[in-house]
Design a protein around this nucleic acid. Sequence first.
DNA 1: CAAAATAGTAAGGGAAACTTATCAAATGCC
DNA 2: GGCATTTGATAAGTTTCCCTTACTATTTTG
Lengths: 157, 157
Amino acid sequence: MPAVLDSDSFGFLITDATRLYRAEFDRRIAAAGLGISPADARTLSHATRCGPIRQNLLAGRIGVEAMTVSESLDRLEGQGLVERGIDPSDRRAKLVHVTDAGAAMLGRIHEIAQSLWADASAGVTGSDWERFLQTLKSARDNLASLREQSRSGGVVA
Amino acid sequence: MPAVLDSDSFGFLITDATRLYRAEFDRRIAAAGLGISPADARTLSHATRCGPIRQNLLAGRIGVEAMTVSESLDRLEGQGLVERGIDPSDRRAKLVHVTDAGAAMLGRIHEIAQSLWADASAGVTGSDWERFLQTLKSARDNLASLREQSRSGGVVA
DNA sequence: CAAAATAGTAAGGGAAACTTATCAAATGCC
DNA sequence: GGCATTTGATAAGTTTCCCTTACTATTTTG
């Protein structure tokens, strides 16, 4: 029973690692002159993977609120990286699709993410890193299901 | 050679996990009526561990800028959880020490962090989790040293 | 002792997310 | 068919967390 929270406890560790990751990602993106944030890069990546997709579905895929994606798309569209098209089957909805410029941008982002991954995982063997990602995924999924629970009903069953 | 970034790649995974962790932490802190943010909890935790300590050293321990800690301490001091004392050996400096109320708060935070850790690590064996934390620590340290490099000199050797 | 470095902070900014309210369009119900 | 509800997107505003820059009060150093 530790009397105080260990600064190497899960919560602090993951928070610290993520802050450092984002800062370094920003630094390299800035150095490459790409002018995009990590969150917008994520939006772009998911939009590419999911093909033309409605914004609310895209938000669900990413795991954020629709509004968060809407703002991100504002920026991406402003840079000409994505376009919001009309959904023929629902005139309220918009179908997001990635432009050629967006695809090119994603390629450059991918290179940066690769180099950053290589640096972050230095000194860790391939199989250890695989297991690490597996456990990280479990933790993320566990936390995501906690979120689901609190979204639908909260404490009240 | 993946054509697109995998949404289960390191960067996305750790970013998502951290966002979910923070949100759930906030939810439980709010449910307990504690009125403190994750970052302030971290400041409080480190201040407790380091005993009376100067703010700039505390910032170094936490891994953030002095200003970030100063703001966090403003809030903690406003809640009576820490006090800024005089450093007898340097009248510019202030020694942060945790009050009894701060210690009590940390105890409650610790309980919440424990329960959250238990939920996040569900389905993972003890030894797997140990290895996971070990690798996470490596990654954090790798990223921290990248930060150091860019702080002192940047691109220029 | 003057110049340079250091501890803390005021001021301001930006990224990433959220909630709430609103509007338009679609859907369900009778 | 018409009205009520739900749904897709977004405007508006807030929060958290962290940063940089500029400044003041000290201390250290040449």
